[in-house]
Design a protein around this nucleic acid. Sequence first.
DNA 1: CTGAAAGCGCTTACAG
DNA 2: CTGAAAGCGCTTACAG
Lengths: 356, 356
Amino acid sequence: MSSITDVAKLAGVSPATVSRVVSAATYPVSAATRERVIDAARELDYVPNALARGLLKSQVPVVGVIVHDITDPYFSEIVRGVEDAASHSGYLVITCSSERDPERENSYVRLLRSMRASAVIFAGSGVDDPERNEELARHLVGMQAYGAAVVHLSPPAVGVPEIGVDNAGGIARMVRALVTMGHRAVAFAAGPTSLYVARERLAGYRRGLADAGIGLDERLVVTTSLDREGGAQAADLLLDGEAAFTAICCASDLLAIGALQRLGERGIRVPDDVSLAGFDDIAMAGMTAPRLSTVRIPLREMGRRGFELVDRALAGEALTPEEMPAEIVLRESTGPPPAVALPHALPAITARRSPA
Amino acid sequence: MSSITDVAKLAGVSPATVSRVVSAATYPVSAATRERVIDAARELDYVPNALARGLLKSQVPVVGVIVHDITDPYFSEIVRGVEDAASHSGYLVITCSSERDPERENSYVRLLRSMRASAVIFAGSGVDDPERNEELARHLVGMQAYGAAVVHLSPPAVGVPEIGVDNAGGIARMVRALVTMGHRAVAFAAGPTSLYVARERLAGYRRGLADAGIGLDERLVVTTSLDREGGAQAADLLLDGEAAFTAICCASDLLAIGALQRLGERGIRVPDDVSLAGFDDIAMAGMTAPRLSTVRIPLREMGRRGFELVDRALAGEALTPEEMPAEIVLRESTGPPPAVALPHALPAITARRSPA
DNA sequence: CTGAAAGCGCTTACAG
DNA sequence: CTGAAAGCGCTTACAG
């Protein structure tokens, strides 16, 4: 491994001069000297040591992204956006799948701090855990002390996110679209109330109903986990309940996909017997049969924008909160309501199945 | 930001002593001193500077994973496995979506080198590009020069991968399973021949056919891209071709999902009219309707194992190549062949649709 | 335009 | 068991 000193020797100049031509800095160096340095660097296959540089600058061009799970398409899409923007500026991105576990999250942030990462981007929604927040806050203060930026892509435990999502508006619009199709009894599969996003989306459901002048039937709101299992569970709960419904609005695509599957297992056709809508518009939403109607969030764009904010913050600019749009996209999983609503239609559906 | 010196002062000891208690090293320090240091460190919220440490050790506990696209579930699963294993050892993982572009790949590896990352794991299959390989090789030599490990999870341009996958065996077994169900005319949707994996999987198809004593019909092998679009294209090609087939074996799940969708659009039922099989067993394979029969590769496990090898290599051990198994999982997209094979059954299928 | 020198925050022989 | 000193590879005032 050749160092700056090796290059300096070979080029017959001082290390300071090599530094001046090799680093991005714009510093006057004579053309002849510059060329000799470049030749020497190439000859020695010199690659600057970012650690040494980072030690001086007290940070390295690395940004960490805290996600729930990189395997969840919602997050991998965001991470990709961050990566695209970051790599343009010569930054590397570290992925941290915290599984929403405060301990893992803290340990990741501590590691990021010890590495003097230039920034942390929180892509997942916060969970309510005062204990977590105490230690996390300490690390964040520590990071800011050496000049790192912190950006939230979703509401943090306290305060406003640098980049929010119009979660409530998105769901409200979807509910209204369903009402326009003729639905009056729209159920809602909500995520856990400990998650900010889930709460916002539930609020959107309420608002959508209110906008349409439809009263809320608490029996039509089922709270489960924000994944596929939760969706299956929600479908069962609704089907085994008393309240009539002709559409199910889900707080996430994964939830909707789980519901779609369970509905299929129970012989219920979508959208003939019931309409179904998701949220997020992950790639998978366009691959199901029928394809899912959903609310689209520009996930990748959100990641990109997240890095842009990091870049700005690093440049000393103050950040003003912004919000990503959430627009509905209607595909084949939604349609007009059936003649008889579920779960009352269940016996007929079962009968329809058996002879086949 | 307090440094080791600050802690030393507060504890009334030398920086060397602080280093000895704070770093993982097992060095004799009296219990009393140790305690004073720990108290001082806590009081100052001291977090060691990994950059300074890395400068001395000439590497930081960071490993880079080069993937095609973190958004592709095949790769995010692997990355998650690496992450799980890495975080146990206090390593951070950097994701690099190269899009199989030699330039991006080189630039990522160079960045990793400048950061003195402890290792690079190549998760994607190599592409044939001599030019790429020249620069890449230089960077890899550079990394090894400072003690970094390099691990391939798929065949590299030259040599044997540290962790291979039984691609050929997996496809061969799937072909045999289809033959057992009664199929004789099994088509194959292959990936681009420039990709090692794609070539291996094609070889598996050939072998499977040979094992079953069935002659190869070149018209039944269609070469497209390894994604959803490729799958739709493959379905069209086969359907618009002359050769009869009752099953389609795909080189990847994404390919199979694309084919499934196109088949559906053209009114063809799976598995009634044609059987369909994928490869990889990404999460999505279990969510389609019908659920996809496929060949399962333990992706996450592969990632975990990849980091374990890094760990070993870093400890100075020599690595011996190993192979991950690929086992078939039969779900609902495969079944007995229809009475009349495609594409000859097409007119009847079209007729079946129209009246509806 | 160029160089000598100090220093970023650690670790590690070397003494004691 | 503890400490003083050197050095990892850079960058940046400060001189010239």
